[in-house]
Each structure stands twice: as C-alpha cells, then as structure tokens.
Amino acid sequence: MSTQYAMIQGKQVPYTITRIPNDQIELDPNNPRVQYLVGQMAGTVTQDKLDELIWAKDQAKALAQSIFQNGGVREAIIVQPVGDKYRVREGNTRLVCNRHLAEQNPGDQRFSMIPAHIFEHILTEEDIAVMLADFHVAGKIKWDAYEQGKHIHDLFHVYGKTYDWLSDHLRMSKSKISEHLSAYKATTDFLQVHPVPANIKKFSLFQELMKKKDLKARYDDSDEFRQKLYGWLDKDRISDSRQMRSLPDILQNPDAVKALDTQGFDEAAKILITNDPSRGSDLFHAVKLATEALKAAPASDIQDLKGGNAQKLIMLRNLKRSLEDISTLAGITL
C-alpha cells in the first residue's frame, strides 16, 4: 500500500492505493446510477439486487468487454471502510463488471481483485458528490443524461452549489446548467405520473424541449399541454429528441396534432411535408432557400446584372433552363 493525497474542495485528503478482493467490497445502495430504480422497490435492496440492476444496464456489458480486453480494471475505484468491508463510493459498475468476469473466468487472477483508493471516514457526502461530478459529469466517463441531470440537481439543491460554481467546475455554460435543472424537474414530474423505469431515458426529450423558449413557456404555463405531452411520451408518439424539435411546427397544424395524437410523429411529419415539401426533399429545400434569396437579392447583384456581369447572367440562365427541364420531365407548366 502507498499513501497519496487528493485535493477535494480545498482540502488535502489522504487515501491509500491498493488492490482489494471482490468479496471484501459492497456496492453503494445510494449509487446515483440506480437510485431511481432502487426508489421504486419497497424495503431494503440487497447487494444481489443492486448487482442485478447495474449489470442490466447496456453500458455495463460494454464496459465488461473492455475490461476483459484490457486484462482487468485499470481505473481504480474509490471506497470507504464500512464495518468489516469497503463500500464503493465511485466505480460501482466497474466492480460489478469485475465480479461477473471473475465468475465467467474462474481461477483467472486478473479479475479476482480490483484496484482501489481507500479513503478513511474523512469524506463528506458533499465531497463524494463533487468527486462524482468530476468523474462523470465534467470528466471522460460520463453518466447517462438523466443521471447527469440528477447529479447537477443535487449539487444545486442539496449542496447549495451556485451557478457560478457549477459552470466553473463542470465546464458547462449557465444556460446548459439551467436546461439540465429544468429537464430533471420535468422528467421527475413525468415519472410521478408514469413511473415506468424505462421512462428515465426520456430525459433527453425534456432536455430538448427546454432548449426551445416558446415550447418551455407553454409547458410551464399550461397544465393541459403538459398532460397531452405526457401522453405522447408515454405512448411513444414522440420517442426521439430530434422529433421534439419539430413539435412547435406540429402544434401550429391541427391536422398534424390529430395525427400525432392517434398515430405518432411519423404521420404528423407527413402532414407537415405535404404542406411544405422542403421538409422532406433536399431538392425542394434548395428551391425554398434559392427563392428566399432571390426575393431578397441585394441591390449590388442587381446592378452587376444591369452592368452586364457575364458569369452572374450565365448562372441565372442555367437556373432558368434547369427549371424548364424539370417542368418538361414532369409534364407541367410553370
């Protein structure tokens, strides 16, 4: 073992570097990655159940494969002594992966132990929260969007971190922080009405909604709209953040709203495309842009044409011929 020091919230905190057998470590029941799922279960959640919840996440399988290819866990987990065991404070998923690899490869010593940094009873819950933000919000090993949103919410509401602190520490703009906070509250409200565990993945949809001021204002001010939106999300009428970007246009078209209610986004989008072909065609998108540009032609270009600018005149004639060619092929008169 060797002792090192970490700077955490202005404090020099000692920790010990070592390797610990898997069976001497327990998972953290307050692990942010599964906290919502744990909250859905009555009574005390066992270590086996925590393992099951973490292993069920898609990222865990991918991480286990990476650990196997690397010949073991390389990034040390962070633990604290609790009774006769050590409790994981950061790295629950790595521990679960290491355990499963040990089960799948009996006798392989690469997975029987895991590198760990042992912090004695010096770290506060706030210290842990700051460390997790360093690793999984601002750092390279990022949590899912919902988990990041929850952690930012806790830093702000539970630990009293200011917008300035969050912006500096997380390397994130204040507007982005506001989006995360608003999206987390909206997702939490949605989950209270539709408490299906898979619905936490819809955080990204609320995050996209919060980027649009008019849509956010409508969500904040209208209970009727909120309930209608909850229904669309619960029934997967809207299932992708990119679809949320088109929602303001859908809301302006009663037929599109009806299609969204009964069939979903794709049918609503078809109605928008019928009314505006540029939405579904690169060609007509270019036509729309060109038409708008021609209507707003600057005086300098018009004067160039009057002055006999040959190249600009050729471009306009080519455009005219192209329109004539396409109208002939289509059998229409422009």
Rank of each mutant, 00 (worst) to 15 (best):
D23A: 11
V45G: 09
L53Q: 04
K11M: 07
R19G: 07
G10W: 00
G43Q: 12
P21N: 05
L53G: 06
D23M: 00
N22S: 10
D51V: 09
P14H: 08
R19P: 05
R33W: 08
G10M: 09
Q47W: 02
R33P: 10
A42D: 15
T44K: 13
R19V: 15
D23G: 02
P32E: 11
L27E: 08
G10E: 09
L37A: 13
D23Y: 06
T44P: 04
V45S: 06
E26N: 11
T44F: 01
Q24V: 00
Q35F: 03
L37T: 15
K49F: 03
V45I: 12
D48N: 10
E26I: 14
V13K: 02
L53M: 12
I25F: 03
T16M: 10
E26L: 06
D28R: 11
N30Y: 08
N31S: 10
N31D: 14
P32L: 12
G10F: 00
Y36H: 03
Q40T: 15
D51F: 12
Q40K: 15
I25D: 04
L53F: 01
Q24I: 01
D28F: 09
Q35S: 13
Q24R: 14
D23S: 13
M41P: 01
P29F: 05
A42Y: 06
I25R: 04
V38M: 12
I17D: 14
E52Q: 06
N22E: 09
Y15E: 11
D48H: 09
D28E: 13
K11C: 05
L53S: 04
I20K: 00
P32Y: 12
Q12K: 14
Q40W: 04
I17C: 13
P32V: 10
R19C: 14
G39R: 08
G39W: 05
D48P: 03
D51K: 11
R33H: 10
Y15L: 09
K11T: 03
D51N: 12
T46N: 01
Q12F: 08
I20H: 00
T16L: 07
L50C: 10
N30A: 13
N30D: 15
K49Q: 14
V13T: 10
L53N: 02
G43T: 11
E52T: 00
N30R: 13
G10R: 07
D48L: 12
T16P: 01
D23L: 06
K11Y: 00
T18F: 00
G39E: 05
V45Q: 06
T46Q: 05
M41F: 00
P21L: 06
E52G: 02
N22G: 08
R33T: 11
K49S: 04
L27G: 08
D23V: 08
G10H: 09
V13D: 03
Q47K: 02
N22Q: 10
T18K: 03
L53H: 02
K11Q: 14
L37Q: 15
G39C: 01
A42L: 15
D51H: 12
Q12D: 11
Q12L: 13
P29T: 10
P21R: 05
E52Y: 03
E26G: 02
P32N: 11
Q12T: 06
P32I: 13
N22M: 04
G10P: 09
N22H: 07
R19H: 12
A42I: 02
D28N: 15
N30S: 11
V34Q: 06
R19Y: 12
Y15V: 13
M41V: 08
